[in-house]
């Protein structure tokens, strides 16, 4: 069983944007990155996986459950590129809300919140309201909210944007720890330097088409860096 399976997805909207027959498999317990230049269709694909948008044709399954069903998201954590939530919530309040919505209760909820606050180094901020947080603190709160819950799959949309070097390092550690715990991580990014060291598998999406899908190892074995391979693949198709 794959963590995420995308079969023959087509989606067109706007004047000239579309996804053309996208097929993709994300294996369980791996760190997978969807790479592509701005406007390639990465966010659209993430929205389709989460059923925020509807495809024209094709099928998406999360752990063998159709993405059209709410149950498909029961083991999924998601953080958008810029995490935001209502400013009157405290940091702890946000985590409580996210945990409850993901099915946690009682002592489970409390202990997961405490762990997430500690992992993200924001336990001192827990009673602060979101409106008083800096951009970096807000992003860490979002990541903490992502970690609260019983997930098998974590989806992170452009997670490194807006993070300082320490935040980036912390995030990479968290991602690796999640994989070590058997979780699947789906990253959507265009920061290639980070992806080469972090990911097991990548797919390259450009202008709505998957140009490559495979392991990072297979690219490195050819003697190429991920950055060079990406550049070559995308420019050949231009």
């Amino acid at each position: 069983m794959n963590a995420i399976e995308i079969r023959g997805i087509k989606k067109s909207y706007g004047a000239d944007f579309s996804l053309h027959d996208v097929n993709l498999e994300v294996k369980m317990g791996r760190i997978f990155a969807l790479l592509g230049p701005n406007g390639a269709g990465k966010t659209t694909l993430v929205k389709l996986i989460l059923n925020l948008m509807h495809q024209d044709s094709g099928e998406i399954k999360i752990k063998d459950v159709s993405s059209l069903l709410a149950a498909s998201r029961s083991g999924v954590g998601f953080i958008p590129e810029k995490f935001s939530f209502f400013p009157y919530y405290t940091v702890r309040g946000v985590l409580e809300f996210f945990g409850t919505m993901k099915g946690l209760m009682g002592s489970d909820l409390k202990s997961q919140i405490d762990n997430a606050l500690k992992d993200l180094n924001i336990d001192e901020l827990q009673n602060r309201k979101l409106q008083s947080l800096s951009k970096g603190q807000m992003q860490r709160t979002g990541l903490a909210a992502l970690l609260v819950g019983q997930h098998d799959v974590l989806i992170l949309d452009e997670p490194f944007s807006g993070l300082d070097p320490i935040g980036m390092r912390d995030l990479k550690d968290i991602i690796r720890k999640q994989r070590a715990d058997g979780k699947t991580i789906f990253l959507n990014s265009h920061i290639l330097s980070e992806m080469e060291q972090l990911c097991d598998d990548v797919a390259i999406l450009n202008k709505g088409e998957i140009l490559f899908s495979g392991s990072v190892q297979s690219i490195l074995e050819k003697g190429e860096s991920l950055e060079d391979f990406f550049y070559k693949t995308v420019s050949n198709k231009e």
Binding site: L50, L52, S74, V76, P80, F85, M101
Partner: peptide, 17 residues
């Protein structure tokens, strides 16, 4: 307007709920 709707709909709840 606050672009928060994505987070709500990414939870395991139906749109009807």
């Amino acid at each position: 307007e606050d672009k928060i709707i994505y987070q709500y709909l990414a939870f395991p709840i139906s749109r009807t709920q």
